[in-house]
Write a protein that binds this DNA or RNA. Sequence first.
DNA 1: GACATTTGACCTGC
DNA 2: GCAGGTCAAATGTC
Length: 282
Amino acid sequence: MDDILSQVFDACRLARELETSLRLSNVPTDPHYLLGSCEELVGAFNEAIRRLHAGNLSSYPSQMLLGEAPAVGELIVTTRIARMDDGTVTRRVPALRTGNLEMPPDDGYTWRKYGQKDILNSRFPRSYYRCTHRSYYGCEAKKKVQRLDDDPNTFEVIYCGTHTCQTSPTPILIPTLVPSAIGNNMNDNDNDDGGGGGHQQGASPQSASIQLRNWLEGNPRSTGTLLIPRSGAGGSTSRQVGQQQGGRDIDGSVAELADAMFNSASSGSSMDAIFSPRQGSL
DNA sequence: GACATTTGACCTGC
DNA sequence: GCAGGTCAAATGTC
């Protein structure tokens, strides 16, 4: 398994190198260079996928293999979901092995941490988050995140309230670096929330993240399987998606692009144009 | 400067 | 009184 992780890390490293290269470049990027870089990226991820399908899936923790068999290109994180009478939803989310174990896998929303509390008889503190857009949209969504005592690699995430920020009529502008990986899904979601899914700040990865989240919620809700749209290896370490400062995150991270590409695969989106759709080989 | 996290203090319900 | 949840000032990051 380590070699697979190494391969994934390598692919992420390539993505970051490309990102850095693009950021440092003040001149229009050579299409041939871009093509070569993207092909190298895709090749690296494909290699990781190939190795995963070469029989290594059995090394996953059993809880990550619940539900349907993964499609090619899918980043699989399976959760156990419990819906309470009071409207709260509790999810047990395995920490991504390639990510920061101190952080729960991103769920596509943008959260602002407002408190942390040591809980009686718990080894790990509980963190309290509210939607970043509370002040703008009055979004009352909150979540509590706590690592399990008996399984520090698993987070218990308790969602309270629903997001209202996504219903803003403001159209989403996708970062230029993410032209199609998100766009296909965006159309799907426009049907779901009335052309919404809108968010502030125009073209930001945050918007892309919300789009991903919208798609994700529309997909696996009945299966108890949650596809976390982003791995810790893809970018942020101490922050979650989009929690960079306003305007500054306009540079779509190539690593995020890679993640978006990865996670878009199962919906038959543009990922299919990159990775062969459900290649059947497993 | 704007917005993030941290963390001790405060509030509330049991 | 205690534990969980929230507030808000201090501080950090970009």
